[in-house]
């Protein structure tokens, strides 16, 4: 891992920890409320591919990149109790590798999640669990290029802390585990997100 992603990771982590130190209050639909709201989470950060990546056959030289960018778009319905329901998408870079010599090639893999998400606020932290599909995008550059997509079953789990900026706006730090189970792909994400109460009724 190069120094730059490390510095970015550290900065994001500090932001997250700072967020935890400030009591957050941008929570519609806490128990006892009679209001409903729609809350959007939009943000981005880093994705680190956590499990063993795929590669060329044994014996072929290979060089991996396992840290990349990721983004999240999520809309949650906050009813008048603890449990919330929503949809999540976004994008995450999983990993890429260069392989072989004369000719050499390159493979990269990324994913777009499409998940149904449930969440609860416990201990002042929003906990998210999602299930659905990942749209995997694989790109090969070796004696021509191939750009192919496929679906994979998957899930995600995340913990997020929101620091309120105004009545309807907040800044959140989120740690998220993405898992496309069918292809055994998993990434840990650290993101900063803008939390926006879109609608309240």
């Amino acid at each position: 891992m190069s120094a730059r992603p490390l510095r970015i990771s550290a900065a994001v982590l500090v932001c997250c920890l700072a967020g935890f130190a400030v009591p957050g209050d941008l929570r519609a639909g806490t128990p006892g409320d009679s209001t409903y709201s729609l809350v959007a989470y939009i943000g981005g950060g880093l994705a680190r591919y956590i499990v063993a990546p795929g590669g060329p056959p044994p014996g072929v030289p290979v060089e991996y990149t396992r840290t990349g960018l990721s983004g999240t778009v999520r809309v949650m319905w906050h009813p008048d109790h603890l449990l919330r329901l929503g949809l999540e998408s976004g994008w995450a870079s999983f990993y890429s590798y260069k392989f072989g010599t004369q000719p050499s090639g390159e493979v990269s893999l990324s994913a777009v999640p499409l998940l149904v998400v449930w969440s609860m606020n416990v201990l002042g932290v929003d906990w998210f669990v999602g299930s659905g599909y990942y749209r995997l995008n694989s790109n090969l550059d070796f004696k021509g290029t191939v750009d192919v997509q496929t679906w994979s079953l998957g899930w995600m789990a995340a913990a997020s802390y929101t620091h309120p900026l105004s009545e309807s706006l907040g800044l959140a730090g989120e740690v998220k585990w993405m898992n496309a189970t069918e292809h055994a792909d998993a990434a840990l994400n650290i993101q900063v997100q803008l939390v926006w109460k879109l609608l309240e009724w």
Binding site: Y36, D80, W118
Partner: peptide, 12 residues
């Protein structure tokens, strides 16, 4: 098992 909205309770 918990309330979801109003008096609607869910199992998850």
């Amino acid at each position: 098992e918990q309330p979801f909205w109003k008096d609607t309770h869910v199992t998850f």
